[in-house]
């Protein structure tokens, strides 16, 4: 069982993580749980319980190839702006805290979808790239 979590909100490019989950839901994946979370902050760590494999998908403020999809490392996150956060506790901080506390799953993957220059516009999600990066993990 693998859990794939889209992080985002209903607003602008921040919904790209959710859009990815909506697309994956159409593919009839088995042994795969899909979740959409609205700006979870530190509560994201709750969703790593009871599962050893997790993929987190979030919009990232990257100008290159709007709608493009990239596999990211935790250290990449320190350089990139992610989903707007509550109390300044966003995805990068939450995953750093999870790492510090040993709360990250043993098999953990992070996928970023490029927002382009502005967060208010929703770029066309590169579905082929999304599938190429996520499906081999499932």
């Amino acid at each position: 069982m693998i859990r794939v979590i889209g992080v985002g909100s209903p607003f602008g490019a921040d919904q790209l993580g959710w859009m990815a989950i909506d697309h994956l839901a159409t593919l009839g994946l088995v042994e795969c749980e899909l979740l959409k979370l609205d700006r979870p902050g530190s509560r994201l760590l709750d969703h790593f319980r009871d599962v050893s494999s997790v993929v987190v998908i979030d919009a990232v403020a990257v100008n290159d190839r709007p709608g493009g999809v990239s596999a990211l490392s935790l250290s990449d996150l320190q350089q990139i702006q992610c989903t707007p956060s509550s109390h300044g506790f966003g995805l990068a901080e939450t995953l750093a805290l999870g790492g510090q506390l040993g709360k990250l799953p043993t098999d953990f993957h992070l996928i970023g979808i490029h927002t382009g220059e502005t967060l208010s516009a929703v770029p066309i999600l590169d579905l082929a790239s999304l599938e190429a990066l996520v499906l081999p993990l499932i």
Binding site: A96, L97, Q100
Partner: peptide
């Protein structure tokens, strides 16, 4: 930050 604090006060 809480992240830094988590090293010494997990």
């Amino acid at each position: 930050s809480a992240i830094a604090m988590a090293r010494d006060y997990p």
